[in-house]
Design a binder for these strands. Sequence first.
DNA 1: GTCTATATCCAGATAGAC
DNA 2: GTCTATCTGGATATAGAC
Lengths: 204, 204
Amino acid sequence: MRRGDTKQQFLLAALKLFAENGYDSVSVAQIAKQVGCSAPALYKHYPSKKALFDAIVEASSNGYEERMKRINEAIFNSGNSERPFTEEGQIEIVKNLFITTVSDEYPKLFREFVLSVRSKHPELAKIYNSRYIFSQYELYQKVISRLIEMGVLVDNDAEMMAIEYISPVTLWVEACSREPERKEEFLSLLEKHIRHFFIVYGKK
Amino acid sequence: MRRGDTKQQFLLAALKLFAENGYDSVSVAQIAKQVGCSAPALYKHYPSKKALFDAIVEASSNGYEERMKRINEAIFNSGNSERPFTEEGQIEIVKNLFITTVSDEYPKLFREFVLSVRSKHPELAKIYNSRYIFSQYELYQKVISRLIEMGVLVDNDAEMMAIEYISPVTLWVEACSREPERKEEFLSLLEKHIRHFFIVYGKK
DNA sequence: GTCTATATCCAGATAGAC
DNA sequence: GTCTATCTGGATATAGAC
């Protein structure tokens, strides 16, 4: 690990611990131990435990913006601009969304952090709904509108279709954070769901 | 408040506080203050903070069983046995499910308790998935199978239909715990969703 | 920038009077 | 069964040497 990264290491260690245990349950000493330092070292980088917390909130926001930009581009500006708007393309994209969201990386940790510490920062509750529920609806309403325009799906209420399409996936992401060992089960349910959706709404 | 209820009052106060703030963030003194006692009084009823926690877990389990029994009976053994299997009956039942689950009573508190303190009791994570996601799927798969048998809905994959039917509702219950002020918005979305579902799957 | 030692505070839990 | 007073441990945060 490079020198000068210590500040970032503290942030990552705290993110992990807060995400798993909440804010009050985690001591500064625990965070420092993860990094291989003693507690007072942390105070050279952050003036208080709360300041470290706030730094994570900010980082989570940046991480989210970037991630959404990448997802949007992957769907709407990909090299192969047809692929995302086929049944197989959608299965690939949504499975991918699921996997990166639940895998042991920043998106997962940020998501669980927001959930675990929301009582320490009331605004986080709204952030969770907005990011992980309603933004998804908006994104997939655009996807489904496009699928309707292209004649892949029948013309129907795109908002309601998006809700039925992506709500189960969002719910399985949450379920999978709680029971990661069931990941494969959720993935196969997810594929079954999308195929069913395309049968119901697909144009013959 | 009747004498002899003190033990129950401690449990209710702790349930509320743990549900909102998690386990470590709540002190025994806070719980006692809610009841109008000092902290040591609690130790006459529960040997430790952890024992109080365990008592809540147990009570939540009992509460859940009873609630599910009532919901099942309301659907399958109601006086008017046709009503639950019509579009209007379903709107009524699901709205009711939503309202009681998010309103300020035991079901709400138990649900939020399980979510907030799950890091203190790993089994609770599985309990949440089972109670609030997969049991719902099972229940509504039975409802939809019946609706298909009765010729109200077209014959299709009842499992996938149940998932599309109830997942958005479950998600809005969670969203509504975080933003209760949006309850009416979620309720009208819920009605729109059910009407859409009956349009898509309803027999002409 | 990191350590050891320490100040300060507050938590869970107990003792003993009433 | 409830109180006040208290014990004990562990938390955040600081002081000062290196």
